[in-house]
Design a protein around this nucleic acid. Structure first.
Lengths: 110, 110
DNA sequence: AGAATATATAACTATATGTTCATATATATC
DNA sequence: GATATATATGAACATATAGTTATATATTCT
């Protein structure tokens, strides 16, 4: 693989990862992993502004993390691929393990 | 789990994910997954500025993604947990699959 | 001690991003 | 067709972040 192509791929993937790097978007995904939700359901459950939720969803849709289904005036969103939340969980576990390790070290130091 | 705590956890995790959301940092991690590297090795292989690499490494170290070992004047970095790159690979695969799916749809439409 | 090498950091600039408010668009209901 | 409801979007602002240049710190070698 050429170096230029390689860099381009990582640039693209960085943008994909950037979509995971906002707390509100992670909360939205944690909600969607339970099942399909409409915008207003997300607004109500997460206590965010409607415009804010719509914007996050538009971004996530652009980048292929969620899909949308229209039903009347409502828009129902779902995760496009279960592995996305699998990866998130895996990373959260790494972080949790590190936190615990640090905690143990701190205790042993007392 | 309380809602406030839940949000705090996702905020922390978002910061962790944010560390994955830069192309140069992903390139650094792709290099480190092959094995320990010094700063100058990374600078040479990736063609980035030394100050830039040092900054990214400092950030990654702060957030627990890499560990550092000093040897003389050199600093050797490695990934702190193999699962980090596993998660990255998983997400890249999701993206690759989506790309392929879109490509197939485009071909079928011709 | 002084020079050379390796890494880190501070200051600065440019750019990207999240949030909010206001408004637009689309669908359903009367 | 007018009104209400659901969602999307544009403008504006504040903030965060990446990259660069210059410099500081630390270590090795002579």
């Amino acid at each position: 693989m050429e170096e230029i192509e390689r860099v381009a791929i990582y640039r693209l993937h960085a943008q994909f990862c950037k979509t995971l790097s906002d707390a509100n978007r992670l909360l939205i995904m944690a909600e969607l992993v339970k099942g399909e939700r409409s915008v207003s359901e997300l607004v109500e459950r997460l206590g965010l502004q409607q415009a804010n939720v719509s914007k996050h969803l538009a971004l996530m849709r652009d980048r292929g993390l969620v899909t949308m289904r229209r039903e009347g005036a409502s828009a129902y969103y779902s995760l496009s691929d279960a592995r996305i939340f699998e990866a998130i969980k895996m990373l959260m576990q790494v972080q949790a393990d590190q936190f615990e390790r640090q905690h143990n070290l701190a205790n042993r130091a007392e």
